[in-house]
Design a protein around this nucleic acid. Structure first.
Lengths: 164, 164
DNA sequence: TATTGTTATACTCTATAACTATA
DNA sequence: TATAGTTATAGAGTATAACAATA
């Protein structure tokens, strides 16, 4: 089994040291960024922990996501993942061995290699995605509608802020 | 330098395939969980990337956070981080070598070891925290007040959902 | 000569197993 | 005999360097 993620397992409680009963709706800007960082990192850690039992390693999952929108060369995948070519060679080899991706020569440039997701790969990706969302779905369902609306707007904001 | 985080580098755009102009304030529950997962994972990836150049490895940072609220035994730290004792031995050794943590025998049980954060360690942790929050602070500052309020409420919700 | 991808090798961080010291 | 921590060793996953094939 994969090791637990060492990132931010237990940040200090956010309200420590803040005077209680201050019904203010806003906190200082620096505090917001810090609390948001804690919230995001803590949630991402739980998401990864709860997703344990994967068939896919994080790298394999991520590459499969990249391939789900169309064939890519090994170099494109490496650049997109931010890893070096030898690392991508390894990841792709693992995906091929599991039958989740297929390899073909590039029609125009014989040096390059074109990787595609297989049907089994697409199905595996879908299952992995569902597994990774299951824990969060349960938690979200427990919330009142007003809170869900807040999270929906926040999700859009975060996605916009983090887009590259 | 440490490798880039392989987690979710480029999830598919959230609105793909959704009819535009649907001014609905809510989306199906499953969709919310999925969008929230994408938002959280993408943001956490950016946070880690932007925090590159650390003096502290993720594990060392995390242990230092644990020590910042008081001395802990090696076993306590290992349990809190979700790693085995030998791994914690290594992390603690690295912190000691850098002068960020100190070791002492347990007063009641000579088998145990008590780790404490040093003054240098506390200062280093503060600096690391600021670095890790800097990117997010800039992004948050660009937002209108209403959006910041949404994120503030969302941060509290996420922290509550992810608490253990 | 430059570029794409592979192989060889090393480093980091993790785990399990075996061991020492103490309870 | 059980527990806290260390040491030894192995398994992922990453990187850089050197190489082969092609442009």
């Amino acid at each position: 089994m994969r090791a637990l993620d060492p990132e931010h397992p237990a940040e200090p409680r956010p309200d420590a040291g803040r005077p209680a009963g201050t019904g203010a709706d806003t906190c200082p800007p620096g505090d917001l960024a810090n609390e948001l960082r804690i919230a995001v990192m803590r949630t991402s850690r739980r998401l990864r922990i709860e997703a344990s039992g994967d068939i896919l390693s994080p790298g394999q999952y991520s590459v499969l996501v990249g391939l789900s929108s169309g064939p890519r060369t090994l170099g494109q995948l490496a650049a997109r993942e931010g890893v070096q070519a030898p690392s991508m060679t390894r990841i792709v080899k693992a995906l091929e061995d599991k039958g989740l991706a297929t390899r073909a020569g590039h029609p125009d440039d014989a040096r390059q290699v074109l990787l595609s997701i297989s049907d089994v790969g697409a199905a595996t990706l879908e299952r992995a995605r569902r597994e990774r969302t299951a824990w969060l779905s349960r938690r979200v369902d427990e919330l009142p509608a007003a809170d869900r609306a807040v999270l929906e707007r926040a999700a859009k904001l975060l996605q916009g802020m983090s887009a590259r």
